[in-house]
Computed example of a mutant assay.
Amino acid sequence: MTRWVVGVAGAVVVAGAVAGCDVPPAPPAAPGPSVLRPPAPTVAPTAAASPPAAAAAPACPEGGVRLLEGPGDAAMGLRVADVQLVNCGTQPYVLEGYPEIRLLDRKRAPVEVTVVHGADGITGAPTGVEGVPQRIELQPGRAASLAMVWRNLVTDSTVPAAEGWVLDVTPRPGAPRLELELRHSVDLGNTGKLGISPWKAATR
């Protein structure tokens, strides 16, 4: 009897050992949770901000001077206007006497007008066109001025009124001609006369 128990016990042990050989080993522990960090953003190199480019100054005309329209005045049909000539070159520019002036319309066709020195036949009041021609030497950046006077008057309804929108100016004999587009027209009516001053050193 005792031997059977021992035998049984031995069999059980052997069976357990055999059974233990058929049981697969426990799976390895799962790895703990990991945090995935997004890659650091790539910052592209940027060039240093540059200041805005300054507006380019208009080119100086061939003759080394340019024309500018000055202020004007109008009262009771009498018109007075001012034109400036600026030395935009690098050398002194000499003026003496009166410029040669033509008036052109919007299409740059010549306007029929008689240009006179002074205000004779236009007005007896002082207008700035008076004066004796003098020699003026403009250093670079300096300006001279020219006054003009006329009447906006229609004396003959059968004659079309003339209106100039462009000044065609030869500042001195032999110099290249300059054109100045006007903001305010030379509205002659049908008087057909424009008075001009000699060149004067600009006071402003």
Rank of each mutant, 00 (worst) to 15 (best):
P92D: 13
Y93I: 05
Y93S: 02
V94K: 10
L95Y: 06
L95R: 03
L95F: 06
L95D: 02
E96G: 02
E96H: 06
G97A: 14
P99Y: 10
P99N: 07
E100F: 12
E100C: 07
E100W: 11
I101D: 01
I101C: 02
I101Y: 00
R102S: 03
R102N: 11
L103N: 01
L103H: 03
L104T: 03
D105H: 00
D105N: 07
K107D: 10
K107A: 07
R108P: 02
R108V: 07
A109G: 00
A109F: 03
P110E: 09
P110D: 11
T114M: 14
V115H: 04
H117S: 02
G118S: 14
A119H: 04
G121Y: 15
I122E: 03
I122F: 01
T123W: 11
A125C: 13
A125Q: 15
P126D: 15
V132E: 05
V132I: 10
V132H: 08
Q134V: 04
Q134L: 13
Q134F: 07
R135A: 09
L138E: 01
Q139F: 01
G141N: 10
G141M: 08
R142W: 12
R142S: 07
A143Q: 01
A144W: 05
S145R: 01
S145D: 05
L146R: 05
M148D: 02
V149T: 08
V149I: 13
V149K: 00
V149Y: 04
W150I: 08
R151Q: 15
N152G: 00
L153V: 00
